[in-house]
Design a protein around this nucleic acid. Structure first.
Length: 282
DNA sequence: CTCCAGGGATGAT
DNA sequence: ATCATCCATGGA
């Protein structure tokens, strides 16, 4: 099957650090949407896909987001405009709630490559094997499945100290004490506070989950990369600057689609900041 | 080898 | 409220 798209860059979107499961295969990507194995491939403005209905694909990749309007709402400063140009076609996807929450609990103090490794390891060990022809992927393990594991099972997936938090959160959800779907009714501040009550969830992870799984496009996660960008580009000569000031500034400066702005700043910084190379001539 | 990563919880100012 | 420290792991 195939469908037309506009203002969409599949490879860019999948490489922007919001999801950690898709693997490059041939000209496209293989992954899972919920519990379905899916293959997607983009040729110019045509999106070819197998494994899920068009409606599901379009929703997952948020092809309905008015990207040109969103970009037009960004502040007209140099850093933002540079990032915006660099990220043309990058969309904030609609991810399943538990999958997104759990993945970002495991993301603490981990590089994107590590999060990906943890995520894939958990899928292979505890997820459901799903096939698409002769291709195979694994769904993300449900909260119920994880709740029945031991901490060591998760540590074997390289979660380290994060294992305890993920296990505790899974058990809160499985017990019915905490319902991720009911939270969708809450306004942003209440949703954030509710998520922060979960073990292993602080402001940053809560904002990621709000942005990537609750479609709260104003949520502005501040990780080490985004904090660097804010300090260097928006507050150059201010050595002492409180964290709270950065949060206040970003909430008012980037506006109703601050989450998109944040994602563009994040991805641009991560892809253009040269890693320190070892001493030349060695 | 060293450095650092899409941080959070805890306890001390 | 803000800061210091600890927590595990492995790619670069």
């Amino acid at each position: 099957m195939e469908m037309p798209t506009s203002d969409f860059d599949l490879a860019l979107t999948l490489d922007s650090g919001q999801t950690f499961q898709w693997t490059s295969l041939g000209k496209g990507f293989l992954g899972a949407i919920g519990a379905r194995a899916v293959y997607v491939e983009q040729i110019r403005d045509i999106l070819k896909f197998r494994g899920a209905p068009a409606k599901s694909i379009a929703s997952y990749f948020a092809l309905d987001h008015p990207l040109s309007e969103i970009c037009a709402s960004f502040p007209n400063d140099a850093a933002m405009q540079t990032a915006c140009k660099f990220c043309r076609g990058l969309r904030i996807m609609r991810q399943p709630r538990w999958e997104c929450l759990a993945t970002f609990i495991t993301s603490s103090m981990k590089q994107v490559a590590h999060i990906r490794q943890i995520s894939l390891s958990m899928r292979e060990r505890f997820g459901l094997r799903r096939s698409l022809g002769n291709l195979h992927v694994y769904s993300y393990p449900t909260a119920d499945v994880i709740a029945d594991l031991e901490e060591e099972d998760l540590r074997n997936c390289a979660l380290g100290y994060r294992a305890k938090n993920l296990l505790a959160t899974a058990r809160l959800i499985t017990s019915g004490e905490f319902n991720l779907d009911e939270l969708a009714l809450l306004r942003d501040d209440d949703l954030r506070a509710a998520l922060c009550a979960l073990p292993g969830v602080g402001a940053k992870v809560a904002n990621c989950v709000m942005l990537f799984a609750y479609e709260r496009l104003r949520a502005f996660p501040i990780d080490v990369w985004v904090e660097r960008v804010l300090r260097e580009k928006y507050f150059p000569r201010r050595r002492k600057l409180r964290r709270g000031e950065l949060e206040k500034f970003s909430a008012q400066h980037f506006g109703a689609h601050g989450g998109y702005a944040q994602q563009y700043l994040f991805h641009h910084a991560r892809k253009t900041t040269a890693r320190r190379l070892s001493a030349p001539g060695s």
